[in-house]
Computed example of a mutant assay.
Amino acid sequence: MDIYHVNNGQVAPVPSPIAQAPTQGFLWLDATHDEVAADTGAWREAVERTTGVHIYDPHLTDVTNLSHPSYFDSTQDYAMVVFRKLALDGNGEPETAEDMVRKRKIPPALTRLATRPVSFLLMENALVTVHATNSRTIEAARNRLLEHRNKRDGAHASRPPGSPYELMLRLLNAMVDQYLALRQPLTGQIDRWQRALLNPRNPFNDWSALLDARIELRKLDHLCEGQRDAMQELRDHFVDSIDDSPNSRAKDLMLVRVNDIMEHITRVLNHAQRLEATIESAVQIHFSAMAHRTSEIMRTLTVITALFMPLTLITGIFGMNFIDMPLIKDKAGFWITMGMMAVMVVVLLFFFRRKRYLDDQGRDGER
């Protein structure tokens, strides 16, 4: 477990175990799921010795649960937030063989929707984070904090977080921004599927991938709803717990940050719902186009059948086994019959044209 002390714009690593908790500033205790799962009791004792706060057994179980959804809970001593972030480095939840086979069929933009939980234990003067190994978001935040040790204050220098609340909200904001970055590749993939669905020359056969993509988008929809609910409860906790009089400005800043995170989550949620609706619309248009093409084929076959029905009738009549029939012994009988059949075809075509049975075909031919 790594421990950092943030105080008055200064960030310093603290050796573990810490002898005495600092009276100014706050501590950031960072651990991985593997470290906590290796010995949960020892980890809880180390956190309690450093912060003076005892973590309850249900929350300790939640911290080590890799399948836990986004969640918020609070006690008198601390508040707990579980937030599911994108597993950008591929270290997501354990997958079954069926999941691996299915994800190989999904485009890369959708396979990036694998997630894993990050747990925050928010205390008065400390923030405890538990995440998967090699978390890029946590690593980037740690590096930015450590860079403040070698920077002088300047007009454009960014300041380190002033409280555990602010540090947690910065981390949450970075995690939500990862979802916002997925909007463009997801939209591009859906657009490619739309063009493939409406391409009459190449029949669309990748239905399993399309169904799996819809399932992934539905999972993203549920994921964002859980994240938004957790942030709403966190916002209510800020409103109820932070005193108005001495920290009114700090409270306003925290609420602004929470509202910004919730707005980002809502944007991702709306985008996922739009993509899901786009897939459904594209599938409906695809089957409508197929039905239209089938209708055109059936109409063409009907016209051909209608043209040949009188001709078949004539040939059937002249094929009867009668001795005396008109035009049978006439030298011009064959040509007279063929002329009559041609005239009937022309008359039927003219009739079909007047009835607009061939209008669509005529316009398609002009195009």
Rank of each mutant, 00 (worst) to 15 (best):
R112L: 14
S74I: 05
R102E: 05
T115D: 06
Y56A: 13
A46S: 13
F72V: 05
L60Q: 13
S70L: 05
H68F: 12
I106V: 14
E45F: 09
A79C: 12
T75W: 03
M80Q: 03
I106E: 03
D73S: 14
V53P: 00
K103M: 14
V63I: 15
A42F: 10
A79F: 14
S67R: 12
T115G: 07
D62F: 10
A97R: 01
K105T: 01
D39P: 12
A46M: 12
Q76H: 09
T61A: 12
F72K: 04
V118Y: 00
D57M: 07
A114N: 15
I55P: 01
Y56G: 03
V82D: 02
A87D: 00
T40W: 05
T40N: 08
V81Q: 01
R112H: 13
L66H: 03
Y71G: 00
R116V: 12
T96V: 09
V47P: 04
T40D: 11
A87Q: 04
G41H: 13
L121Y: 09
Y56N: 09
P117T: 06
R116S: 07
P117H: 04
V47T: 13
N65Y: 07
T61N: 11
T51E: 01
L88C: 02
S67P: 00
S70I: 04
E95P: 02
A87S: 14
V118M: 15
